[in-house]
């Protein structure tokens, strides 16, 4: 079944995604910042759960200073749990105090090199499903779902 948004896209003839390359995606750095915002869904609405994902790995430039600066903004448990669900067990359960190169390389890989191309993200609280298509998370809500 098409959702409202897809239907709308088809109406306007812009659902043809054949132009899009297969290598655009949601990275875990973005996923770690997305939360459900459906009407009345204010608690336990993070992290969104990946489902039916198609993964791809692509190298990114390693920048330890960026990672150190970004670390305080990460919800650590959500990142580790999500990475493990996707098969990457390289990160420790607790954020380490000593940031050695091995750790930073693992963090770099998890945040920036694992790409979710297709699939969906489900809210753990209200079960709202946010589709990912062509690598773009669709976080739009229908009018009646907006809080």
């Amino acid at each position: 079944m098409m959702d409202v948004e897809e239907e709308r896209l088809c109406l306007f003839g812009i659902a043809d995604c054949s132009l899009l390359p297969p290598t655009i995606m949601v990275r875990l750095i973005t996923h770690n910042l997305l939360a459900c915002h459906a009407k009345d869904c204010n608690a336990n609405n993070f992290p969104l759960q990946f489902k039916d994902v198609k993964l791809e790995f692509r190298e990114a430039d390693f920048n330890p200073d960026f990672l150190k600066g970004f670390m305080p903004k990460i919800e650590w448990k959500a990142l580790v749990d999500t990475a493990r669900e996707l098969g990457d067990t390289s990160l420790p359960l607790e954020q380490p105090e000593m940031l050695d190169d091995d750790f930073l390389k693992n963090l770099h890989h998890v945040l920036l090199e694992i790409h979710v191309e297709e699939g969906s993200m489900t809210c753990p609280n209200c079960n709202h499903v946010y589709p990912i298509s062509n690598g773009i998370p669709n976080m739009l809500l229908a009018e009646h779902e907006i809080g």
């Binding site: 390359p21 655009i24 915002h37 998370p137 976080m139 739009l140």
Partner: peptide, 23 residues
């Protein structure tokens, strides 16, 4: 996203309203 691809950059694009997707 296509423009990112054309310029060899991975962009983090979210289809959503204003800042709502980030709660």
């Amino acid at each position: 996203v296509l423009t990112g691809k054309q310029n060899h950059i991975d962009l983090n694009v979210v289809n959503g309203s204003l800042v709502a997707p980030f709660g």
